[in-house]
Design a protein around this nucleic acid. Structure first.
Length: 372
DNA sequence: AATAAGCACAACCGCCAGCTT
DNA sequence: AAAGCTGGCGGTTGTGCTTAT
């Protein structure tokens, strides 16, 4: 079965049910993470999922929140979903300078009219409204910063990611001029590799490697890649604090959650709980209240200091304790990762020692609860 | 020099929440 | 209450460019 997907890509489904994308660029077949129905749905009509699967899906949704989401999902399937635009007539791909100028000029003169969908028609652009919005927000909007991230921005991104996860819009809101897309790309292409890759060598000495972590989690409750990354980061911090207690429960947090997690199963899986209750956080509480079932108690200030120090050590040691994975700065990057205490200097404002305005956010740090 | 592999980033996608009809 | 629409979000892909072999 072959269905055409965007920009000439072809999607196939193997006998195992796994999808593959035949890239027109690389001319390679590679595994595809798309859910199969997204490949085959046409005109917003989802492939029917059989009733037993739905019942299983609903039963598997253990929490009331998950069950609610399942029900909403099914409702959507019944309703269908109208496309936001006619994809046959809408132009896609990179924006031309002329299109940019048209969009920018119109919005600067008349605003968006609070209706992105109607905007391209008003302007005369053959673009999807969503595409116009994205182009404006990520590129054309005034005061957008492009190019290298400053060390302080790096610091803020890392801390917030460990604290609240992949909520890029919230993280970007703390970085004036940066867009969530920029921050997301920067994390995925640079920061993540620096943090997660910097200490990989240490794991060879008894600690589970990242792929072992993945395989150890092949149970019934898959974790998102984001959650896994955060677990890895926390594990690395734990490992540094006490290498012999790797994979041991965070007793303090686990105790705090013993009541809340009483309904969890004993199948060897573990839960990730995110503390998001900072009192003085500049973040919008509305944004942080999305997963009430995952809330955890805020850590003590002593723990915050410890974690922050360990994070700093993690980053610095990544450049000093490894030999074959030394972090090298690329052309145009600021060489702050290799800032060295041996130089006998105080940490600059843009270093981890510096406490930015997001300190209170960092207090909502991630805690990992192992329910094994 | 040719090719493969990796990187960076703009753009696209589906999902979801909130609002309106 | 149901149906439909829109904006916002995070995950993922496509593709040009660079680097490695």
């Amino acid at each position: 079965m072959i269905q055409h997907r965007r920009r000439g890509s072809k999607v196939t489904q193997s006998q195992s049910g796994r999808c593959h994308v035949i890239s027109p660029h690389h001319h390679q077949v590679k595994p595809c993470s798309y859910k199969y129905h997204t490949h085959t749905q046409t005109n917003s009509t989802h492939l029917s999922i059989n009733t037993q699967d739905k019942a299983r899906q609903h039963k598997a949704a253990s929490t009331p929140h998950q069950r609610l989401q399942t029900l909403r999902s099914r409702k959507k399937e019944r309703m269908g979903r109208a496309p936001c635009c006619d994809k046959a007539t809408v132009k896609r791909g990179p924006w031309s300078p002329e299109e940019d100028a048209m969009l920018k000029t119109y919005i600067e003169e008349r605003g968006t009219g609070n209706n992105w969908i109607a905007l391209p028609h008003k302007i005369g652009l053959k673009r999807c409204g969503k595409s116009c919005r994205l182009r404006w927000l990520n590129y054309l909007r005034p005061n957008i910063k492009h190019g290298d991230f400053t060390p302080e921005e790096d610091s803020t991104i890392c801390k917030l990611y460990i604290s609240i996860g992949s909520r890029w819009s919230i993280i970007a809101a703390q970085l004036p001029g940066r867009t969530d897309n920029d921050v997301k790309n920067y994390w995925n292409t640079k920061l993540k590799k620096r943090l997660l890759g910097g200490r990989r060598k240490d794991r060879r000495q008894g600690a589970p490697a990242s792929n072992e972590l993945d395989s150890a989690n092949d149970g019934d409750r898959p974790l998102s890649a984001s959650a896994m990354e955060r677990i890895q980061l926390c594990m690395q911090l734990q490992e540094m604090q006490n290498p012999l207690q790797l994979w041991q429960p965070n007793r303090q947090v686990a105790a705090a959650h013993s009541d809340n997690n009483s309904n969890s199963n004993n199948s060897g899986s573990f839960n990730v709980a995110v503390a998001e209750q900072g009192q003085s956080s500049p973040l919008n509480d509305q944004h942080l209240s999305g997963h009430p079932q995952q809330l955890a108690s805020p850590p003590s200030s002593a723990n915050v200091v410890t974690i922050e120090a360990e994070l700093q050590e993690l980053l610095y040691s990544a450049t000093t304790t490894t030999t074959d994975s030394v972090v090298t700065t690329q052309q145009g990057d600021v060489d702050w990762w290799s800032y060295d205490h041996q130089k006998g200097k105080e940490a600059p404002e843009n270093c981890w020692d510096f406490t930015p305005r997001t300190t209170s956010v960092f207090q909502d740090y991630t805690s990992v609860v192992y329910d094994m």
